[in-house]
Design a binder for these strands. Structure first.
Length: 925
RNA sequence: GCGGAUGUGGUGAAAUUGGUAGACACGCCAGACUUAGGAUCUGGUGCCGAGAGGUGUGCGGGUUCGAGUCCCUCCAUCCGCACCA
């Protein structure tokens, strides 16, 4: 009987569904384990072989844990709000909900083919009102909280209001953007509007005018991580800076905890470094500089307060609010001209222009707080408005950028480093002795820093300060296909929609474009189209993509709860995710925001943990091998090996990889039928009469015609083969190009495994005692597999199965015990074939996944002898078979007694004999 | 520039604590069987050499009886960040 994978797989897909084999419930008698995949955005293109890579790995691990007796939560869902569905809606008028639904159906069909053990009864979709009701609810909690620096957690805003009523904000321990100071009576005299304006500067979700990355082509605001090289990640449109009223998240409040939490989780160093880099903690001091002859003060942040005597000028960002006020009349025109030029430049231009030093003198001077000297104030676009205070104290001797600026504009450079030459470049190391600096003279940088901060604080002109690069996250999008805010406006003030009226559902609109006067698409909705009609109007922005994905892993625990986003009991049982698998592209987006929301929900007592993902693995990307053909100036297609040396006038075209044979030649007739432009194409063939293509590795994508789909491979080889082959390709974390050629090896292995049971046309296993050799093979494999899975090395696991089946075939083993154990062992990798075999071996069994994972027994591995390699001075010369269990002395005696040993010793006595029992014997002469 | 990772046959790759480098698979070569299938099975396959043997994990050093593995210098590739004061 042949291995009929298509029939077997279809059968078990159906049985699993009928018996609800993968449905799980909270069961406190078993330990829990939570295996999670990053849920996909259901795009119209469907899945290619790269998508399931991580899912296969997590599926294997989930099934393995289940066989070990864990109650495993392994869910799947869809991140179903997003731009492509909306773009499609704009073009076709089709409602994004319909496209999304269709795409999800297609995804589900493809995922089911692979035999994943997802508990689909727990599916979540971020675009479902029953889901985003709770995204809105979490937003409300964030709006209603501030970050208390004393208790070091989020607290209710009502607590802050009470404090303001009692003592104003003089001694308030809250993270804020508030620049004004007020006392209790001032607060109590404020109007509702004034109070709310203040509170917005404390709330964790707040409305503020902020610099945003505005993309005119998309008509929306983008987050920093949605911009790649200065253009939008999606579509590649230019992005410019604009000041707009936006919702933001005060993620900065959590900067320290986000940083410190990294030490407690099992992620790769690369990923942790990326997050550390993104958070960008730096310690230093904030210092006030008095502007000469005015009341104005300029606050700067510096990491080198020890170099304060080296300050010889200041530079402000062109956008700095004080620039116009302090510029002298004779400089004002030039200053404004420079400001305009800077504003026109996109961030991209500024980045590209690093080498080009520009700046403008304001005509104003500041007073050096220690020397009292006049220091000129300049503006320059190398100073960023959005970092620190948007102003720097320039220390040209210690900072290369300040040095270059000083050289370019011929500004003074004071050397404050003992014995350092700064005639060519700044001295940026922190190991020099400070000189020419009054009370700091002779100190090392470290001590000088402390002394400087102390002096600054005593003078009352500043304080020691920690600064973060992390910026608050803009939370508004001028888009249709996203979560509406649970917010309405009354008298110009934002108000929260009451819980009873959640969710605020997405209203119908006539078009998915912004309105003519630039309002977001939701402004097109009539009042009646909204699920709640409160105040003057609802919030027209929608939430960004990361809103729904920041907490979805919690919803799987309790997907249909209508009273809470997750019940206390369920979250207490499931806790955080034990193993999270997904791509590294979310390093500074999703993974950071998710940690932020988790910490917030923890602070508010909704969760018993504050890190969402205990262990994280980034699977590598599977790349496509594009096929490139060459068309000459004569419009003929040339074989790659027939290209002239100087291929001028030749152009490269990518052709569908399905049209390429194994020998890299094109199926010419199929090509002519593929696209009309090739219908009458002529060819320049090589000596073998073929047209060869060049291969290039690209991202797998429809536009490169290099997509390989799992559907085709399941059809030809079966899901079990595809699952094992994807694992066999190499280490999970590594990116690698897809190559279908090798799949026959894995397919052949499964056939070989099948033949262990089906030798003479019938299913046959022997009930006799297993041979020692077979038991040795089995237990070797059990141990290897266990170790491989514990270190997430799925590829070596597949190899171990191959070796095992090869050995058992060679031993002609068809022993029931051995084959049963092997089948359980392999079930996580190849669930369909193993279920089929198990059903034949044990017809009463419901599923193999109710069995116990095979236990390793070392007794079966013990050998009677071991063949020692014997080396002389490290060079292996002979092999000696000796019984096991000998002491090193006995081994030495046995080896020395051999005539061959005497031959290699050439009459000498070894200086030293090194013996590692069970490993090696080495003689040092 | 900074940070992270990776360099092993024709190819994908193994080698878990320093202990016989190249397991396993693809490809290739030779053969068997055959109702000629893209089936199955057997043997070979790092490089040099007829052979004994030599040599070999990006380059160059070091530690060690012994290094793919540990240390130092350099080189290459990939990824992330990038005027962050």
């Amino acid at each position: 009987m042949d291995y009929q994978f298509n029939q077997i797989e279809a059968k078990w897909r159906q049985i699993w569904q009928e018996r609800q084999t993968n449905k799980i419930t909270e069961d406190s008698s078993k330990p829990k384990y939570y295996v999670l995949d990053m849920f996909p955005y259901p795009s119209g293109a469907g899945l290619h072989v790269g998508h399931p890579l991580g899912y296969i790995a997590s599926d294997i691990y989930a099934r393995y844990k289940r066989l070990q007796g864990f109650n495993v939560l392994h869910p799947m869902g869809y991140d179903s709000f997003g731009l492509p569905a909306e773009q499609y809606a704009i073009q076709t008028g089709q409602h994004p909900a319909i496209t999304t639904k269709e795409n999800i159906a297609r995804y589900r069909q493809q995922l089911d083919l692979m035999g994943f053990c997802f508990d689909w009864s727990r599916e979540v979709r971020t675009s479902e009102p029953s889901y985003y009701k709770w995204t809105q609810w979490i937003f409300k909690q964030l709006f209603d909280c501030y970050y208390d620096t004393k208790s070091n957690k989020a607290e209710r805003i009502a607590k802050l209001v009470t404090e303001f009523e009692k003592s104003g904000n003089q001694n308030c321990n809250a993270v804020n953007d508030c620049t004004e100071q007020f006392d209790a009576s001032a607060w109590n005299q404020m109007s509702t509007q004034e109070k709310e304006a203040i509170l917005q500067q404390y709330r964790l979700a707040y409305l503020a005018e902020s610099w945003v990355n505005w993309c005119p082509a998309l008509g929306t605001v983008l987050a920093n991580d949605e911009i790649v090289n200065g253009v939008s990640e999606r579509g590649g449109h230019p992005v410019e800076q604009k000041r707009m009223m936006q919702w933001s998240m005060r993620i900065k409040a959590y900067a320290n905890r986000l940083l410190e939490g990294l030490d407690r989780i099992d992620w790769t160093d690369a990923l942790k470094e990326q997050q550390r880099n993104w958070i960008g903690k730096s310690q230093g001091a904030s210092v006030q500089f008095q502007v000469k002859n005015t009341d104005a003060q300029i606050e700067v942040f510096t990491t080198r307060p020890d170099t304060i005597y080296g300050v010889s000028f200041m530079v402000l960002a062109p956008e700095h609010p004080l620039v116009n006020a302090i510029s002298t009349p004779d400089q004002l025109e030039a200053v404004q001209k420079y400001q305009q030029e800077a504003a026109l430049k996109t961030e991209r231009d500024r980045q590209a222009d690093v080498k080009n030093i520009t700046g403008q003198f304001t005509g104003a001077f500041a007073v050096h707080p220690f020397t009292g000297q006049d220091i000129p104030i300049w503006i320059g676009d190398y100073v960023l408005a959005s970092y620190g205070t948007g102003a720097v104290m320039a220390v040209p001797c210690g900072d290369q950028r300040d040095y270059d600026f000083a050289k370019h504009f011929d500004l003074p450079i004071h050397n404050i480093f003992e014995g350092q030459d700064i005639s060519e470049a700044a001295y940026t190391e922190k190991d020099a002795i400070i000189a020419n600096s009054d009370f700091l003279n002779g100190l090392e940088a470290k001590t000088a820093m402390k002394a400087a901060i102390q002096a600054i604080e005593e003078k009352g002109i500043g304080y020691g300060k920690t600064n973060f690069r992390l910026r608050d996250a803009v939370f508004s999008r001028q888009r249709y296909w996203g979560e509406p805010f649970p917010v309405y406006y009354q008298d110009g003030l934002p108000n929260l929609v009451p819980d009873e009226q959640l969710p605020v559902t997405l209203p119908e609109v006539d078009k998915y474009l912004p309105t003519e006067d630039g309002e977001p698409p939701l402004a097109r909705a009539t009042k009646e189209a909204w699920s709640c009609q409160l105040g003057e109007h609802m919030e027209y922005n929608t939430m960004p993509g990361w809103a729904g994905s920041s907490w979805y892993f919690l919803r799987y625990m309790d997907p249909s709860n209508e009273q809470a986003f997750v019940s206390q009991e369920k979250v207490a049982y499931w806790q955080n995710v034990d193993l999270y698998i997904g791509g590294s592209e979310h390093a500074t987006g999703h993974l950071l925001y998710s940690r932020f929301w988790t910490k917030f929900l923890f602070d508010q007592g909704y969760l018993p943990f504050d890190e969402p993902f205990a262990k994280l693995i980034n699977q590598g990307m599977i790349l496509g091998k594009s096929a490139i053909a060459y068309i000459g100036p004569d419009q003929k297609m040339y074989s790659f090996d027939c290209l002239p040396e100087e291929a001028e006038g030749f152009r490269e075209v990518r052709i569908l990889i399905d049209l390429i044979n194994d020998d890299e030649s094109i199926q010419l007739e199929a090509l002519q039928q593929w696209q009309p432009q090739y219908a009458n194409l002529e060819f320049v063939k090589n000596a073998a009469g073929k047209v060869i293509v060049k291969r290039e590795v690209d991202k797998m994508s429809k536009r490169w015609y290099n997509v390989v789909t799992p559907d085709d491979l399941c059809e030809r080889y079966g899901a079990d083969t595809l699952r094992m082959y994807e694992m066999f390709l190499g280490p999970l974390e590594q990116s690698k190009p897809w190559d279908t050629k090798g799949i026959t090896g894995v397919h052949g292995f499964l056939k070989k495994y099948w033949r262990l049971f089906h030798q003479n046309g019938t299913f046959e296993v022997s009930d006799s005692e297993p041979t020692p050799a077979a038991l040795k093979t089995l237990h070797k494999t059990i141990k290897k597999l266990h170790d491989d899975l514990e270190r997430f090395s799925f590829n070596t696991g597949v190899s171990s199965f191959m070796i095992c089946v090869n050995e058992l075939t060679e031993q002609k083993c068809n022993n029931r015990h051995v084959l049963e154990q092997l089948t359980i062992l392999m079930a996580p990798y190849a669930p369909h074939i193993c279920e089929e075999i198990w059903a034949t071996l044990r017809p009463q069994s419901e599923t193999i996944f109710n069995e116990q994972y095979p236990a390793f027994n070392e007794a079966f591995l013990v050998e009677s002898s071991f063949t020692y390699p014997v080396s002389f001075n490290g060079k292996m010369r002979m092999k000696v078979e000796l019984p096991l269990g000998l002491s090193p002395a006995e081994i030495e005696a046995a080896v020395m007694a051999l005539p061959d040993t005497q031959k290699w010793l050439e009459g000498k006595t070894p200086k030293k004999v090194i013996i590692v029992p069970g490993k090696i014997v080495n003689m040092v002469l």
